[in-house]
């Protein structure tokens, strides 16, 4: 591991300035679970690592006035997954965060870091996308907010500009919703997702089926994606036939690749299977 310096700024302005100053050779981190591996493997060679854990608000995990959940950038996967408020109000998110790697890793890995790595397999992202989460960014021009779906640009690529860092995530509350996160790994639990599916449904008397849906798919495209056609079909019909059609639509939305973990064909079919299973479980809970 090549040497680097360590700085723990106290203000957002200071943090942003540090990131600018080192011209891309400074790396922000919170949990360090990804950054140290990348440095160890020689993928990145930072001159300085910037610890965000003293910045204001980064440890927030609370429900704000409008009912949204606010997750500071340094909140860990375990803090989210084991939080009773999250478990009752945002169960899909709790499942996603709780499925990452091991307990000890989740004690350090953060949701913010998971998003900033922009892996298509990030297990927290599909749930957040289903809830319509936004990310809060601070940079040289001050704060800005982006929908999470606009944050991901490609594998390992985000909308963060030079000098910008993610400070928090807000997650809207979806009244009456139930959700499930399903993933497939090589080992039974704790593996990187070969693919994953987040399904969120809630009662909605304005649509023919009586329920509205959001479905997000991980590790089957360059970024986490929605399956809009599947969502639309479910709002029309949640009978077994409708469910099968929606699951197939989700599989059709997937654009996976072959890699050493799985083939595209397997991933696509597993999107179909896990989407159907997820929707079935949600339907049981929301009484569809």
């Amino acid at each position: 591991m090549q040497p680097f310096d360590y700085i723990k700024p106290q203000t957002l302005e200071e943090a942003s300035a540090l990131l600018l100053q080192h011209n891309g050779q400074a790396r922000p981190f919170a949990g360090c679970t990804d950054l140290l591996i990348r440095i160890e493997r020689g993928f990145v060679h930072p001159q300085v690592v910037v610890d965000v854990k003293d910045l204001p608000g980064v440890h927030d995990l609370l429900v704000v006035r409008n009912g949204d959940l606010r997750i500071g950038a340094a909140v860990t996967m375990n803090q989210v997954a084991l939080n009773p408020t999250v478990q009752s109000g945002w169960p899909l998110l709790a499942e996603g965060c709780g499925s990452v790697a091991s307990y000890q890793l989740r004690n350090r890995a953060t949701v913010g870091g998971n998003l900033c790595n922009a892996s298509p397999a990030a297990d927290s992202a599909p749930a957040l996308i289903c809830y319509g989460a936004s990310v809060h960014i601070f940079g040289p021009d001050g704060p800005r907010t982006l929908p999470l779906e606009a944050f991901f640009l490609g594998p390992g690529r985000t909308a963060l500009q030079a000098g910008e860092l993610l400070t928090a995530i807000t997650v809207p509350f979806v009244r009456g919703s139930a959700g499930h996160f399903l993933k497939l790994g090589r080992t039974t639990i704790g593996d990187i997702s070969l693919m994953n599916v987040a399904v969120l449904g809630w009662p909605d008397s304005d649509v023919p089926s009586g329920s509205s849906w959001r479905i997000a798919l991980g590790s089957v495209a360059p970024t986490v994606i929605r399956a809009p056609e599947a969502e639309r079909l479910l709002s029309q019909d949640t009978s077994p036939a409708g469910l099968e059609a929606a699951s197939q639509a989700a599989a059709a939305a997937a654009r996976p690749i072959d890699d050493i973990r799985a083939t595209a064909a397997y991933r696509s079919d597993m999107v179909r299977v896990l989407t159907r299973r997820g929707v079935e479980r949600v339907l049981e809970e929301i009484g569809g």
Partner: peptide, 19 residues
């Protein structure tokens, strides 16, 4: 390399000493 950090287990290989 698991150790307890303030009572919670972590992988000490992924914690900087300075932290």
């Amino acid at each position: 390399c698991t150790v307890l950090l303030d009572g919670e287990p972590v992988n000490s290989c992924l914690v900087l000493g300075v932290e």
